[in-house]
Design a protein around this nucleic acid. Structure first.
Length: 172
DNA sequence: AAAGTGATCATG
DNA sequence: ATGATCACTTTG
């Protein structure tokens, strides 16, 4: 079942674990790939010093302020595209970074595999025929850890357990 | 351990 | 216009 608007308007803190085990679906020139999400991270609001919106709304970050259910894709370190799911309500900047799918651990690796780049920034995940997410009833078990690659953030924000890694699960 | 790589943002 | 920064990956 394809995930709808009501799923994405939940808070990122609630959605990050819920996205584990869901199927990330991509249509590339008619070839459809579906892979289970294995790793996610929360970026939550202007008060989160690791979140891109921590320095306010800009041309790049304005998309985080939209209502949940769209893609936020940006180029990191000049090389890697990173894919986030914008979540929550309009005017509050929050998103969940997809860090891994089956067989492709690493946020830059999965976007390369799925051909996700800035052309998909702002893509509507609820209505898109190119990029969407499905729930097939998989129930996930997971662990939490601090987030990766945010040494520049405040100590308080660095130690938050906002990374979620799938350990096991089953179809129900 | 460190390079490679380029969009973005703050400064001038 | 310029320079610093950066939610990563690969190589040695």
């Amino acid at each position: 079942m394809k995930l709808g608007k009501d799923f994405y308007t939940k808070r990122a803190t609630e959605l990050a674990p819920l996205l584990l085990g869901k199927l990330l679906c991509r249509n590339i020139d008619g070839k459809i790939i579906k892979k289970r999400i294995t790793e996610t991270e929360i970026y939550f609001g202007e008060n989160d010093s690791a979140c891109h919106a921590s320095r306010g709304k800009t041309e790049r970050t304005k998309i985080l302020y939209e209502e949940g259910g769209i893609a936020y894709v940006y180029l990191c370190y000049g090389i890697h595209h990173l894919f986030n799911v914008v979540t929550g309500l309009k005017d509050f900047p929050e998103a969940v970074l997809i860090r891994g799918i089956e067989g492709y651990q690493g946020p830059g690796k999965l976007t390369k595999f799925l051909n996700i780049d800035r052309a998909l920034n702002g893509e509507d995940l609820v209505n898109s025929d190119k990029l969407w997410i499905e729930d097939d009833g998989y129930v996930a078990k997971y662990i939490t850890t601090p987030r990766i690659g945010i040494d520049y953030a405040s100590e308080e924000d660095r130690k938050r357990l906002w990374r979620f890694v799938l350990t096991e699960g089953e179809l129900k």
